[in-house]
Amino acid sequence: MLSGEFPNVNSSFELDNTTCKAIGGAITKSTLNIPSSIFEGTFRGQYTCIFKNISKKRGSMRSVDWIVFMQCVLPTLVFEQLAQEYGPDALQVEALMSYVIGCCLALQWEIDQDDLINIKKHFQNWHLHMKNEVDNNMYTINFHLLRHIHGTVKALSPLRAYSTKLTKRSIGFFKKHVKSQVSPRENAGNVIKQQLLIRNFSRVYYGDDCLGEEPEKDEYTVPGYPHIELWDPCLSTTDNTMLAPLRTYWDSFFH
């Protein structure tokens, strides 16, 4: 919306190409003085693409990148240009800042009753501007979902406490190991089961410190014991004389 990517559409926030390039240049210069460890997203170079070459680079932006862009770039570099273009008290400038404030409040680890009231108020301001001043096809599902944040936080606690962002790493891990095209369901089930067995062994034997480690060389082996194969637990000790001593051994080993 800021870069004017949508022609013949009233997006209310559009900035000309020269201004967008100036913002991109300012972002590039600022990255030299910002330690990369400060942000969850990849600050260096990513946000410049939004303004300098949005049609080709926008797809490389992750959710965490957009969140940092919203928290750090919108209320500073972008706000400055919007205020100069439309005036600091313009409806679209106030609406955009309501959007930023509402999101920043919702991203806190601790949210009190006053925060909840402000979250609801700021997202309502943003919603009314989008509804009354911007073309209907600009009002996406993401803007609609912002109106539910107040009720969601009130019912379930701050968003950060149960964010699904960290599950993306787990999804990528399992996706890499599910390779069967004939029986993907069974393959996925076996991969998950084997991983749970590894994590359970690691927790009992090594403690919780090693749970973030992944199996070496993509092999599902017990950490530190690459020759051990993982089998299903023995539920019965009557069908095979070998199972009884095995069970006795592991019982004594792990108490």
Rank of each mutant, 00 (worst) to 15 (best):
R199Q: 14
T48A: 08
D209C: 03
N240Q: 11
L15Y: 05
D232A: 08
G24Q: 04
V68H: 09
T221Q: 13
G59P: 04
V64F: 00
K131S: 12
M61K: 00
Y206L: 02
L197T: 07
L2T: 10
V178P: 06
D208E: 15
R199A: 03
Q194R: 07
L159T: 00
T19M: 05
T152M: 04
R169T: 09
F201G: 04
S3W: 00
K57P: 02
V191K: 01
L230K: 07
N137I: 06
V68C: 15
M130H: 00
L166I: 13
R147K: 08
G224K: 07
S55V: 02
S170H: 10
R247P: 03
C104R: 04
A188V: 07
M242W: 09
E40M: 06
I141M: 11
E186A: 11
T18K: 14
Q124W: 05
E133N: 15
L211K: 01
A26T: 05
R203W: 07
H144E: 05
S30E: 13
S236Y: 10
V73G: 06
K165N: 07
F51I: 02
R58M: 09
G189E: 10
M138D: 00
L197C: 15
S180L: 09
I141S: 11
G189P: 01
T164M: 13
V182I: 15
D218M: 07
C234F: 12
H177P: 11
D65I: 10
A244H: 13
Y139L: 15
L246P: 02
I101G: 00
Q124V: 08
E5W: 00
T241E: 15
P184L: 00
G41H: 00
L32S: 06
F174R: 10
V222Y: 02
F254V: 15
N132G: 02
Y86R: 10
R169Y: 08
I117R: 14
M242C: 12
G172C: 03
R62E: 05
G59W: 04
D114Q: 13
E14W: 03
A22H: 00
K168V: 12
R169G: 06
V73E: 05
A106F: 03
P35M: 01
I111N: 02
F253L: 14
C234E: 13
E80F: 05
D16C: 01
D232H: 02
Q71H: 10
L116I: 10
N33L: 05
Y162F: 14
K120R: 07
K52R: 00
S157Q: 04
R44V: 15
Y249C: 05
L15I: 05
P35L: 01
L230T: 05
D114E: 14
L243F: 15
H255M: 12
K29T: 10
L116N: 07
T164Q: 12
I101C: 04
H255L: 14
A83K: 03
G41D: 00
